[in-house]
Design a protein around this nucleic acid. Sequence first.
RNA 1: GCCGCCAUCGUCUAGUGGCCUAGGACACUUGGUUCUCAUCCAAGAAAUCACGGGUUCAACUCCCGUUGGCGGUACCA
Length: 435
Amino acid sequence: MKIKTRFAPSPTGALHIGGVRTALYAYLVAKKAGGVFSLRIEDTDRARFVEGVTEDIIRTLKWLGLTFDGEPIFQSKRVDLYKEYAKKLIDCGKAYEKDGAIWFKVNLSGKTAITDLVGGRKIEFENSTQKDFVILKSDGYPTYHLAHVVDDHLMETNPVIRGAEWISSIPKHVQLFEAFGWEIPPYAHLPIILGVDRSKLSKRHGAKPASEFRTDGFLAEAILNYMALLGWTPSSGKEILTLSEMVKEFDLSDVNSANPIFDITKLEWMNGEYIRKFQISNFKFQILEYLKELAGGVAPDHPTEKEVEKVAPLVKDRIKKLSDFIPLTDFLWEKPEYDKEIFDRLKINDLRLKMEKVAEKMEEMEKPWKADIFENTFRRLADEMGIKAGDIFQLIRVAISGQTVTPPLFESIDIIGEEETLKRIKAAIEFLQTT
RNA sequence: GCCGCCAUCGUCUAGUGGCCUAGGACACUUGGUUCUCAUCCAAGAAAUCACGGGUUCAACUCCCGUUGGCGGUACCA
């Protein structure tokens, strides 16, 4: 039987990270088998419907590279269909109308069981624990239960991949399939991703919309890779995998059945891995795209493409997220603001005096400053002043950037330029005089 | 409460009866490299395999129970 999966979010809130994993696994299962992966929007709850969310979901899926086949299916456009099927159940005595809604008549004898594709575990319920439930609401819209059964049957979904919060509804779904005389699809219930407080990851616990991870500077590849590994280990044991490698290796039976905790620290590490692996030209491109995205689609005045190109090799190994680029480099094109506390942290005596000597030395130096000559000159000066070479470089660093951490000093100075560097040293001296 | 799912280092996990005095990754600690920070390299600490019973020559691995966590218990999905 052909493999057809679908991602079926309901547009009641932006796509979050748990949804990303569900979509990813469904995508992997379909692509591995050369099957179909589609998107179905479960917009049957008019009260909770949020405008614009469908667009966010589609846009985010696209950014992640989880492309779905065909056009999205909207359940709200299929209400007549669900109504028709609900009526059929009434006609054969398996449902009834009450208070304007249509209820399914549950069979209370025997057991309902399925074998879940995740962990190959058997999930079993005593039918006596069930009770009649609504399949068509009084507003004419179907409940999830009816819509799921009708749609996944008509779409020939195989297997059904969804979150474990649906496990308790299995008896409802199985009985519905049986009532229609339809084949019960294979099910894969994915463990629920937990927040650090161990409760279901939701908006409350930093389960930020997936799109927000983008503005936070995460790469689509890293998010996909990390989410894939949250509950799954490829048999190869590889940790860094491309989407197509995941497609090759993925298997639902290798998915862990315990609920994993979302750990952003590891995501950050993985993001850094991806950034470090970039070719410089691609890294430059990613930074540029990111800055543009942040500015709402237009490239900012600074840094320019040329400027990014210059610093790219200096920062590539120093950042974990694309957003880290900004605080690490903005001093290069913006005058620093000084903070007394940062100068104090240097623990150098007669700071202003030493700074003045540095300025003098810089004025004497032949331009353009060459990195090796620059270094030797100041190492000697440090000797003369009786301080460590590291201290003098740190002193210059703070003076030109206002920060204790920057990309390599000589290269940074090269970007800033001799004239501007000297101006900043003087500005720092002035600052030290007035405080 | 009831129903269901789950249970290996702080976290993600490997492990499908003997190879486990439990392996890897992140995080953490220490050392090396270094103009800061990273990177990189090396080393280390970290899990009585939730607990208690079985089954077996042998259990982290199988069975039962307990505890704990999570989910469900809506005319929400």
